[in-house]
Design a protein around this nucleic acid. Structure first.
Lengths: 179, 179
DNA sequence: GTCTATAGATAGATAGAC
DNA sequence: GTCTATCTATCTATAGAC
């Protein structure tokens, strides 16, 4: 793996493990096994590093979903459910949202990602007997994110059980043939 | 207003305006009009400052809702809808979630707040003709948070319109008389 | 591409006078 | 409770040798 990729992998790991707070040049460099001044050769400013980390994280998340898609739509659904209950994934997402709030470039990347994610999500919902109109996909996506955030914020078994119940409820709401 | 309150107000302002990234001792002190070394008299460590800011933010958010409740349940509903589309409020919430992820004390405060918020939310939903069982409140709460995060992340008119549509859809899902 | 070295800024925290 | 002064650690960024 080339150095640039090693750096991005290390950054993603820190982001997933401890949140955006850990994403500093010295820590990323140490985790990647390069000198800090070498890191700035690839990413001259912190903003460029963050943008690259955002793109890399998004590629990763989208890639995992696309990979699941090769198997079956139900696996996509499971992947989304697992991702939304995986603290590492949620930390990455919240970090990207916070970064997007301060950097339009990251905001654009996140917009594209939302579109892409929903493009993957829609057929998975459809094959699960759920409605896949854009409105329904947006609805389900919102529920998934809400559950994920509430779960990371509270982080106990009660929150996990609640997330499961709420997601099932959301699925019933967009079940085909209803309303 | 005493100094301690001024500090917390200033911190909340920074958090709402620019996110958790801005919450440093020097910036908070400057915004509050005190010396940094004076700030550490009230909050000896950064962790204590963060915990106090969390408590203060939560009191503020809960207070605004409780105040709306004195008027009418529909105002509570409007307050929740407005809060979830107000970037300042969402920044505060995301900052607290990120802080809770690293500090169990903040996590506990956030858990209590979720309970409190839902206690206010439930009768508002009920008086709006919606079901107010805990499951339904948790469901609606999740949708609100998901919409808020998606909106902050993308921040355009499309996202705003989508959030409105999704919230209305969620309301229809827990309308009384429906399954 | 990789390294050493270092500058300049900012953050967190403490000691002690008043 | 408020202040000055200061220390240490950390972060971002640049210059220049190899």
């Amino acid at each position: 793996m080339d150095v640039r990729s090693r750096i991005l992998e290390a950054a993603l790991g820190l982001l997933a493990e401890s949140g955006a707070h850990e994403l500093t040049q010295p820590r990323v460099a140490r985790a990647a096994g390069v000198r800090q001044s070498h890191l700035t050769y690839y990413f001259p400013t912190r903003a460029e590093l963050m943008q690259a980390v955002a793109r890399h994280s998004i590629e990763r998340l989208a890639g995992e979903l696309a990979h699941a898609r090769e198997h079956s739509p139900s696996q996509v659904a499971r992947g989304i459910a697992e991702g939304s209950s995986d603290k590492r994934t949620v930390r990455v997402m919240l970090g990207l949202v916070a970064a997007a709030d301060r950097d339009p470039a990251i905001k654009r990347a996140l917009r594209r990602f939302v579109g892409e994610l929903r493009g993957i999500m829609a057929p998975a919902l459809a094959s699960g007997g759920l409605r896949a109109e854009p409105e329904c996909v947006a609805f389900f996506h919102s529920v998934v994110i809400g559950c994920a955030v509430l779960q990371l914020a509270r982080d106990n078994s009660e929150a996990r059980a609640e997330a499961r119940a709420v997601l099932q409820m959301a699925a019933r709401c967009i079940a085909r043939g209803k309303r």
